[in-house]
Design a protein around this nucleic acid. Structure first.
Length: 723
DNA sequence: AGCACGCCGACT
DNA sequence: GTCGGCGTGCTC
């Protein structure tokens, strides 16, 4: 009785009456046993005359609701309830009891109208759309198709992908009109693109409305942001839009700046990054969605930006980890932009100082053309690279004090008379396999032969059985010393400070990243990826602890090391710039000179390195040539999912192997087991070309399990970390 | 995921 | 006879 009254009051306050009244049709119609739902009026509330059924995608809630639900459209919502708008619908109320004409249960969920249709296939009465949140059509057909394709590719749900793709709404930003679009700019001059034989042609193709596809190996130096700007300007000149995704906000800002000067002020492009905050982000996103702005540069989430009639999809530095999304289903910007280039029939430009194996594959299978400079241009733009074997011991005391081999120390001392010197130190988190200092035999646990790992405070422990190790001796040579673990940037800076007392020292790392340093003598100690740009280029760079980068137990260790080195080296003055012998910069890399990534750096040949790496992966059946998916969860769940999935012919299951147990208190990353639970992980591998069949099979098996209410294992397509 | 319905065992 | 266990299945 009193609860009845309360409910009525709540309902009356909460929302316009029409939707709620219409929600009651179901009860009436069910009794009439109507085979097809032809929504009718209830207590005089009329439905939309044309296309009275809205197909709605429910945004949150149960994962397996990855389908469209039909709702009735009340007449007064007819005009606003267009495809693409955000709506609120009652969901799950159907099982609620109806008492005295009021419905119990069921919550209001957010969703999007995907389509308006005349009739519903649903054999039952429809509830009505409760509310049109706003008339802004934010989920257009192109964006929807993209999200569907991404969901399919990654064996994920459409709702998951929509959460990544759709920005949070801000009513204030939405209420503001966007500025009218500016006319296309004139085609840009080739500028520094002229350094690449195919560069000017690529720009011309974009400007005339073609859709060229290229893997661009950028020359070292400061010109790549301007080159991106020119590519975007050329695309705009054709009357089409453009999208460029870069790995971090610092780089996005550099491209944004270059675009601002190339396009003459702002208005034709926007910067879209997370740092903007939700309201400003939505304001800019709307300007793109409304077609007011046709060019976008941004970080990861911008890969979904609904650029109108795009002519170019671009990505810079596709090997950077931050291009891989943290959230399910963890799509990679490179692949999303590839999908878009195909689906939206656009040009494609993947730019990088180095080259990932994936990029090499695009070249190898002919999908994209290589866009490279000639050797002479490379020689002029790149610094001189010298290697020092890590085993080399410094003769001089000063060099030893700085933990530096003689050559490195001399190079730094000399370069400091001409400008800033960059010192790249791996992050302390980069824990490589420990090995004997003398013979480099990997350090193993005496009990179970598992790999030894460095614990905090220099203590050792086994990575498999967890036993602490106190008296380690090398099994091969009897040596008692392990290679020192990576010395962090701060301690390196202190040590260098003692060796070069008169020189100012700056550090740049995870917490405080410097974006630029002035063109004055200074030592700049940085972790990979955080290197500041020196205005006139660095006089030299020192790449320390190469063994730590190369020794990571990861398929990509070599590729990543080379990428980090190229990035640092590209900030150093070119060999051929500044007037030859004394003006050019030098890079000293401290790593075993015979290793392939080291040689690729010395020759500045990332394309050759990637091609060899690709060939090797093809031979070994590794991704990206073969395609893989990781399935992790409780042992039975993993086994059942794999067994029940109709995997493509020739699919191979590797493992399962137990996953490390998540320690309580440790932040949990997607795919990690919940604390205390024992999980296993299996890898499923398929032949080249069967990637989409694999994703489809896993997605379907997952849906079937979910329909039965079973806990679903985490499925990750194209896992990055696979030993 | 919630939530109601349903078909079996202990109780007034 | 009824109350209530949580196993199944549906939600427009």
């Amino acid at each position: 009785m009193s609860s009845e009254n309360e409910r009525s009051k709540r309902d009356a306050e909460a929302r316009p009456p029409a939707g709620e009244q219409l929600a009651l049709i179901r009860e009436t119609v069910r009794k009439a046993n109507v085979p097809r739902a032809k929504p009718r009026t209830w207590r005089g509330a009329a439905l939309a005359e044309e296309l009275p059924v809205a197909k709605v995608l429910v945004d949150k809630g149960p994962v397996h609701l990855d389908k469209l639900w039909d709702y009735a459209v009340p007449a007064e919502m007819d005009a606003e309830a267009r495809p693409g708008v955000r709506v609120r619908v009652r969901f799950g109320a159907g099982t609620g009891k109806v008492r005295e004409g009021r419905r119990e249960g069921g919550g209001l969920l957010d969703g999007y109208i995907i389509e308006r249709v005349a009739e519903s296939d649903f054999r039952g009465p429809l509830a009505a759309v409760a509310q049109v949140v706003s008339p802004e059509p934010v989920l257009g057909p192109g964006l929807l198709a993209l999200c569907r394709a991404v969901a399919d590719r990654y064996a994920g749900s459409l709702a998951d992908v929509l959460q990544l793709a759709m920005p949070r709404r801000s009513a204030r930003a939405e209420a503001e009109p966007s500025a009218p679009p500016l006319p296309p700019p004139p085609p840009p001059a080739p500028g520094t693109w002229a350094r690449y034989p195919a560069g000017p042609g690529f720009l011309e193709a974009l400007a005339r409305g073609d859709r060229p596809r290229a893997v661009w190996t950028a020359l070292p130096g400061p010109h790549w942001p301007g080159e991106w700007a020119a590519a975007v300007a050329a695309t705009l000149a054709s009357g089409r839009g453009a999208l460029v995704v870069v790995p971090d906000g610092k780089k996005a800002a550099r491209v944004d700046e270059a675009l601002t000067s190339a396009l003459g002020g702002s208005g034709r492009h926007v910067l879209l990054t997370a740092e903007l905050g939700p309201e400003e982000r939505y304001r800019r996103w709307l300007a793109v969605s409304r077609g007011a702005v046709r060019a976008v540069v941004g970080t990861r989430a911008a890969m979904f930006a609904p650029v109108r009639d795009p002519g170019l999809m671009g990505i810079w530095d596709d090997g950077d980890q931050s291009h891989s999304d943290d959230h399910l289903p963890r799509p990679h910007a490179r692949d999303v932009l590839l999908l878009r280039a195909v689906q939206e029939r656009t040009g494609f430009l993947l730019g990088d100082l180095g080259r990932t194996v994936e990029a090499a594959q695009l070249v190898e299978n002919g999908w994209a053309r290589p866009l490279e400079a000639g050797r002479d241009q490379v020689r002029a733009a790149a610094p001189l690279i010298r290697t020092v074997d890590e085993g080399e011991v410094a003769r001089d005391a000063e060099a030893r004090a700085a933990r530096l081999p003689t050559l490195a120390w001399q190079t730094v001392r000399e370069a400091l008379t001409r400008g800033p010197v960059l010192v790249q130190v791996p992050r302390r988190g980069y824990v490589p396999r420990l090995a004997c200092e003398r013979c480099r035999e990997p350090a193993r646990c005496a009990h179970c032969s598992g790999p030894l790992e460095a614990r905090d405070a220099d203590r050792l422990g086994c990575g498999w059985c967890g036993r602490p190790e106190t008296g380690w001796h090398c099994a091969a040579c009897g040596g008692a010393r392990l290679r020192a673990s990576v010395v962090g940037a701060r301690r390196t800076a202190e040590e260098l400070g003692r060796a070069f007392p008169a020189v100012p020292i700056r550090t740049s790392g995870r917490d405080h990243v410097l974006s630029t340093v002035p063109d004055r003598p200074a030592l700049v100690v940085s972790t990979p990826g955080a290197e500041p740009v020196a205005e006139g280029g660095y006089a030299a760079a020192l790449l320390l602890d190469g063994w730590a980068l190369l020794g990571r137990p990861d398929l990509r260790a070599g590729e990543d090391a080379l990428r980090h080195w190229l990035e640092a080296a590209s900030l150093v003055r070119g060999h051929g710039e500044g007037g030859g012998a004394d003006g050019g910069g030098t890079v000293v890399v401290i790593a075993e000179p015979t290793l392939r990534p080291v040689q690729a750096l010395v020759r500045w040949d990332p394309a050759g390195y990637a091609a060899r790496e690709l060939a090797e992966r093809a031979q070994l059946g590794f991704p990206p040539v073969s395609r893989m998916a990781a399935v992790s969860g409780p042992a039975e769940a993993v086994a059942e999912l794999i067994a029940s999935a109709g995997l493509p012919e020739g699919a191979e299951t590797l493992g399962p192997v137990p996953l490390p147990v998540t320690e309580p208190g440790r932040p949990r990353r997607p795919g990690d087991p919940p604390p205390g639970e024992r999980w296993e992980r299996a890898l499923v591998r398929v032949r080249p070309g069967q990637g989409s069949a694999l994703a489809a099979a896993l997605k379907e098996a997952k849906a079937r399990r979910l329909a039965r209410g079973e806990k679903d294992p985490a499925v990750r397509v194209d896992p990055l970390e696979i030993g």
